[in-house]
Amino acid sequence: MATETHEAAGHAAEAAGSAGMPQLDFSTWGNQIFWLIVTLVVIYLILSKVALPRVGAVLADRAGTIANNIAAAEELKQQARDAEAAYEKALANARAEAAAIVEATRAEAAEKLKAATARADEQIAAKAAEGEAAIAEIRAGAMEAAETVARDTAAEIVTALGFSAPEGEIAGAVSARLKG
């Protein structure tokens, strides 16, 4: 098989007089190295002069745009946050104001209520005093009438029993009894 392989690979190697492996055919190395160097130099020049600056510029450009957009977005976000804060503040103010109004109204109402209660109390007290006075008067009247009746009755009884007594004595005795 080896000889076959030799023959097979041989038709190019024959001229060069090398063994079966084209890689080890040193007669072609000069050619390959020459064209390789030409290729590498051409690629290097194209890349370093045209392609790489262009791609680098595009990438830098894009990075700049993205950074700008992010900054703008950040700014808008900040604005939104400010607006929200202002709104919150206004809301809080309004709420505080409403609470103050409610408080004031409540105090006023309480004040009025208290005044009305006091006036009503006063009237009630006056009425009660008036009533009291009337009752006392009635009671005094009744007491007096009762004393008179008792004195008269006592005098009558004394007389009916056949005794006589001075006017003043009977009256003093009745008064003392009534008091006692």
Binding site: A12, P22, G30, N31
Partner: peptide
């Protein structure tokens, strides 16, 4: 290994550097 053989494109069998 035949696929690795260096051949001149435009005739001839000699492979010079150019």
């Amino acid at each position: 290994m035949d696929q690795f053989i260096v051949k001149p494109l435009f005739g001839g069998t000699e492979v010079h550097w150019y």
